[in-house]
Design a protein around this nucleic acid. Structure first.
Lengths: 330, 330
DNA sequence: CTGAAAGCGCTTACAG
DNA sequence: CTGAAAGCGCTTACAG
């Protein structure tokens, strides 16, 4: 009989099956090196099933000194298919090692410290960058940390990074190869992506300088036709013949604005995005864009995590993550 | 001095500050009703800081009998802006009550049972439907369960549900109002959304029947121009003059296919999507679509969760979640 | 104002 | 083949 209040414990199972808690633990955990008679084993299993017994994770974690959780901390940017796939791959890979992946959507820095103390995960995987003292605290608590970097800093070999500046540079290099000379940057008004946008713009500016072009004209777009149209008027006034957009959605807003202003793409202005979302190949003309290989990123992230977990070999940096997909807009 | 191995415990802090563990606990938890001298308090706080002490969540949960976690179980469908916003709102609301939200991306049914035992959350919020015995097990373990339903089943008042069939019906009702008589359904080849797609198609079929139209012509589309074009040829052959798409992305594939086949939208064929993603208003012509109010959904979810947590009043069913946004494609 | 002690539910040497 | 007992790190009546 379950106790009137609360969940049953191993003591309840022991009582119900007439054995000690030791035996219950041995049977339920399949502890190797023990020899429990089949009859006893049956009785214990039956009792556990009948009572709906589930071991207390808190007690188990306390006793074992660690949990079987991997905490993934997401940055405060919009979710998308890339992240989706990344988490999926990571969870699958870790499940094979009996680790559970739990995701924290990282709004609010303050809460993070509470959180990792609360769940006491084996490893924390940050898709956002951690402060140095945060990393110190976690390591001190015996938690492995796999970090993310927004930039190309490679000092920490486990750091997971997509070279954001390279993305911007690739956009400009392609536009220059197409003979464009006056480049505009179409950024985002979403504050959550500001870090990324800044890096990409740095890459755009550097590539313009390297090609002897003037500094890029900078604008931030909403995902609205009117916003794109306003930008398009400024571009026409400045003689812009090429637009590098923060991502494909912003590129779509730019395209809508150019269309509304009667400018021809790619005749008057070429446009290149980032992400290669499905819409990029479905609109007409198709959107030229920088594709990020989820496979390569996921493989790197998984490898870095396994490295932190059990000292598996470090993965090579994912150099082959980016490639350009050329379509009708350039 | 921290112990050579592992994290410091409250005993270490007690030793370092020359008080008992009781006092350490009182100080660190700000336990009301105790009167610790400011000097003692200072010493404890300093020692804790110096040692980098963080209480063991496992021990605390074991002692208290429950954790401060809310586990959100996501279904196995692609992430998107709606889910993003939903999680954001829920996390914000619960943070105000000192609850942490942790998200499990629910691939693999088997693992779920392990997971809730492992983290011993206060509440499990399912954005996917749970099996009845799963719910029973969780409740038996003292965990509140907030369930999701794929359909319009309203037996459980806490169940969170978007009326999927209503979505399909709204699409058809609009098409009929526009004078269309031969409706096709553009489904998805993504198996992860099969449940949703089925419900929406049921709504489409029912609305067709109600309007005296023939059964909808059914096709599943990839997010590729070629796939849309193949469907477009079939639609032309069957005299289809209206397409209800599973979502906006599929609608974009349909539009790309119709364009490739030289069919005019909305002249020859009208198209209506679901979701109102940014691209829907950025493409030309703009995509008519069924908008799901994230606000209403989030409010309902938050209310249902708070109800489970502390018996707050039940939210009204979110009837006002859906509305049609009419643009150029119909 | 502060401390000694019990107990949360497990697992695992150790002893039989 | 199985059990009594210790101990993981906390919190909290209870006693001073």
């Amino acid at each position: 009989m379950p106790r009137p209040e609360g969940r049953p414990t191993s003591a309840d199972v022991a009582r119900a099956s007439g054995v000690s808690r030791t035996t219950v633990s041995y049977v339920l955990n399949g502890t190797p090196g023990t020899t429990i008679s089949p009859a006893t084993r049956r009785r214990v299993l039956d009792a556990a099933e009948r009572l709906g017994y589930a071991p207390s994770a808190a007690a188990r974690a306390l006793r074992r000194g660690r949990s079987d959780l991997v905490l993934v901390v997401l940055p405060d940017w919009p979710l998308g298919p890339v992240l989706d796939e990344l988490l999926d791959r990571l969870a699958g890979e870790l499940a094979a090692r009996d680790l559970q992946v739990l995701v924290h959507h990282g709004r609010g820095r303050r809460r993070l410290a509470d959180l990792w103390r609360e769940v006491a995960p084996r490893t924390v995987v940050g898709l956002t960058a951690f402060a140095a003292d945060e990393v110190r605290d976690m390591r001190r608590a015996g938690i492995e940390v796999v970090g993310a970097r927004l930039d190309e800093d490679r000092h920490d070999p486990t750091a997971y990074a997509v070279p954001q500046q390279r993305i911007g540079a690739m956009q400009v290099e392609h536009l220059v190869a197409r003979g464009r000379r006056r480049v505009a940057w179409a950024g985002s008004t979403d504050p959550r992506v500001a870090d990324f946008a800044t890096r990409r713009l740095e890459g755009v500016a550097a590539a313009c300088a390297a090609a002897g072009l003037p500094e890029p004209l900078v604008a931030a777009l909403d995902l609205e036709v009117a916003s794109g149209a306003a930008a398009a008027r400024a571009w026409r006034a400045a003689g812009v013949d090429a637009v590098a957009a923060y991502n494909d959605e912003v590129a779509l807003a730019a395209l809508a604005g150019l269309r509304a202003e009667g400018l021809d793409v790619p005749g008057d202005v070429a446009v290149v995005g980032v992400d290669d979302v499905p819409a990029a190949r479905l609109v007409g003309p198709g959107l030229t864009t920088v594709h990020q290989s989820v496979e390569a990123q996921a493989a790197h992230l998984v490898a870095a995590t396994l490295h932190a977990l059990d000292g598996a070999g470090l993965p090579p940096a994912p150099e082959e993550v980016l490639h350009l997909v050329v379509r009708g807009t350039t």
